[in-house]
Amino acid sequence: MSTAATYTEFATREAYGVSPTYERLSRAVAANPAIHELLETVPEAKRQPNLLFGVVRLLGGPVDDPAGFHDFTVAHWNEIAANLRVRATQTNEPGRCAVLLPVLAKLPQPLALLEVGASAGLGLYPDRYSYRYGDRLLGTAGPVLECELTGTEPPARLPEVVWRAGLDLNPLRVTDPDDVGWLDALIWPEHEHRRERLRAAAAIAAADPPTLIRGDLVEDLPALAAQAPAGATLVIFHTSVLYQVPEPRRQAFEALVRTLPGHRISVEAPGVVPFDGLPPAPDDTLHNVVALDGVPLAWARGHGQAMSWFAD
């Protein structure tokens, strides 16, 4: 896909109705050959809108003014490019736990959670957050994660988690101000509620840090999974991660994870983890497929704000 098409699709399918600032900026970048030329000097995987916009925000550049964004990007390209090469879109959105919870609550308790692509590990605390599904409130502590849930009843209980661990090529630490600054830069401009959630979730993780391992999702996953305690249900999960993994490595992961014990929850775009016979998505915006052990269950929005259950 061309750079122009990538930014147009991001504006149309991801930012539309969610972030007017990023929708406007994406359309401006799509029509800006000078920015395209600069982006073509970095690997294709490093040209994605979320990564570019996050780096510019981290470096103090404007994203609310396309002309100012253009001038800043051209003037500071060497520094921007250096950050693009070493950083990844490690959006650690606690809100995604709201689409994991209906699946986790149905599994045999207690749980041992292992997240692939864990970033700072904020997705490893579904038992420490509260949730609002319509008029149903679940939980009494932590940030309240709101999700528009259709097609199934909200879960009646929080999961019991006795072990939590994460695997990431570059794990982030919630106790490191620079790492938290990068997570903040990845939050879209208008989403102050997500910044508040980030701070609240980071405080929970800092008080009881998970095991975060720097490693590869194929080479290092079996050894980490083997550390899960006996008597707990191992759940390996990943949310909006595999699109960053090259196709051959993705296939190797798919083959490996089927051999491991326990269960696997995937929350990925349908082109990343493909399934046959999916029902139509609720609308034209980008939705992920929530699946358990390779069986698709529901559509979900990228930040966990909505879930449409379609499985029996």
Score class of each variant (00 low, 15 high):
Tyr7Ala: 12
Thr12His: 09
Thr12Asn: 10
Arg13Asn: 05
Glu14Val: 07
Ser19His: 05
Thr21Tyr: 11
Leu25Pro: 15
Ser26Leu: 02
Ala30Asn: 11
Pro33Cys: 11
Ala34Pro: 03
Ala34Gly: 11
His36Cys: 13
Thr41Trp: 03
Arg47Phe: 03
Pro62Trp: 04
Asp64Met: 06
Phe69His: 08
Val74Gly: 04
Ala75Phe: 01
Ile80Cys: 12
Ala81Lys: 10
Asn83Lys: 06
Ala88Arg: 05
Asn92Lys: 01
Asn92Leu: 01
Glu93Val: 10
Leu100Ile: 02
Leu101Val: 01
Leu104Asn: 08
Gln109Trp: 02
Gln109Val: 07
Glu115Met: 10
Val116Cys: 13
Gly117Asn: 09
Ala118Gly: 11
Cys147His: 04
Pro155Met: 08
Ala156His: 01
Ala156Asp: 08
Glu160Pro: 00
Val162Ala: 09
Trp163Tyr: 10
Pro171Phe: 03
Pro177Gln: 12
Trp188Tyr: 07
Trp188Ile: 04
Glu190Trp: 05
Ala205His: 01
Glu219Tyr: 01
Asp220Phe: 05
Leu221Gln: 06
Pro222Tyr: 02
Ala223Ile: 02
Ala225Ser: 11
Ala225Trp: 02
Ala230Met: 11
Gln244Lys: 04
Gln244Glu: 14
Leu256Gln: 08
Ser266Trp: 00
Val267Leu: 03
Glu268Asp: 11
Gly277Met: 07
Ala281Asp: 01
Pro282Val: 11
His287Ser: 00
Val289Pro: 01
Gln305Leu: 01
